[in-house]
Computed example of a mutant assay.
Amino acid sequence: MLLDALNRLSGQWQVNLETRVSRTELYEKRIASSRPSLGFFVLLISSAVIATLGLISNSTPVVIGAMIVAPLMDPILSLSFGLAVSDDKLIRRSFVTVLLGVSTVVVTAALISSLLDITHVQSEILGRTTPNLIDLGIAVAAAVAGSFSMTRERLSSSIAGVAIAVALVPPLCVSGIGLNLGHEITAVFGRGSVTGLSNQVAEGSFLLFLANLIGIVVASLMVFLIQQYGTITRCWRNLLIWLGLLGLLCIPLSSSLHDFSLTQEMNAQFSRFKAGKVERLPVIQKNPGLWRRVRVMYSNVRVVNNKAVVDLVINVPQALAKNDQAFDRIMTSLVERSKDYGLDDTVVNVNVIPNLSLSYSSRGSEG
């Protein structure tokens, strides 16, 4: 009686188990996707051009558009399927297609950035140079969605969303851009800029691509095995190899996650000094005076390898700008607070309005 009542209330609602694509049909599609075609390279080069120009112009919508156009996900899923069914020929062909695709994107991005003579990098580029475990988690979730969608006809429209989530082409474009940058580059953060950053753009962005690639392969391989398109008794070697690669990748990514967490925490800390809250520092509370007129206009924190660089733009009264001892007190206080995070070193670069530039470190200070 209760079941009948629930059925009437819900309109006989129940979970619909979509029809699974047959092994033969999926096999044929994966074989076709593993072969490079003219259309594949046309779309890939177009995507690389769109993504590179979007990254250089710091346009998020343009970069998202490039993700939708990019066809690189297909051969990677063919590689995963080949590993699941232990088809060596499909594995080799898919791997070569992925390798050709990667080379095409990197070379295209390098050529464009060389022609435009890029020396400045902005947030869209910098955001892809420090991957961490969060990025790997995104890749795994996107791979589960992508590979499962391929096994269900009704879900095939979800592939575009998966391509946006996993972002394979933009990191490769950043690697191509990074190859043209020297050891000294200028990074633009909001209203401020920092010159003299070590050029780790190409390496960091390629690590992000590897995180996406390995995460997709391992997660998709598991999905295909769970749905019995392959058997673990035949592909256990392939599974162990890629799980090993995943484990090795987690070492630098976990370190980056630690740096990412510290960056967020310190950014939040320094953001509290904005909008006239600088006087909350203990050293200022003892001597408020002109400090109540100090405004932090911009702040940015970067933590790499447990070392922090803090960039500040501060507006101060003219009289205070000439008071070196007062500045030493407030900057020393800021550095001391940042040392609470257990960092190996902290550098605070200060640009003061009116004209003054200072640099303070946990090892000392420079004017």
Rank of each mutant, 00 (worst) to 15 (best):
L225V: 03
W236Q: 02
T231V: 08
W236M: 00
V218D: 00
G204L: 07
V201C: 12
A211H: 00
L240Q: 13
L239K: 04
S198R: 09
I232S: 08
A211E: 02
L221T: 06
G192Q: 11
A211P: 08
R237L: 04
I226E: 07
L197G: 07
W236N: 02
F209M: 06
F189W: 07
I214P: 09
T195Y: 14
N212D: 08
L197T: 03
A219Y: 00
L210F: 09
Y229A: 15
I241P: 04
N199M: 12
W236A: 02
L221E: 06
I216H: 06
V201Q: 12
G215R: 00
Q227P: 14
R191V: 05
V201N: 09
T233V: 13
L239G: 01
L239R: 01
V194W: 11
N199E: 12
Y229T: 15
Q227Y: 15
F206T: 02
G204F: 07
S198K: 11
F224P: 15
V223M: 01
Q228Y: 12
G192W: 06
R234M: 09
V217A: 04
V194T: 05
A202W: 12
T233H: 14
L213P: 05
I226C: 06
I232E: 09
F206C: 03
G192P: 08
L240R: 14
N238D: 02
L213S: 00
V217H: 08
F209Y: 08
I226H: 04
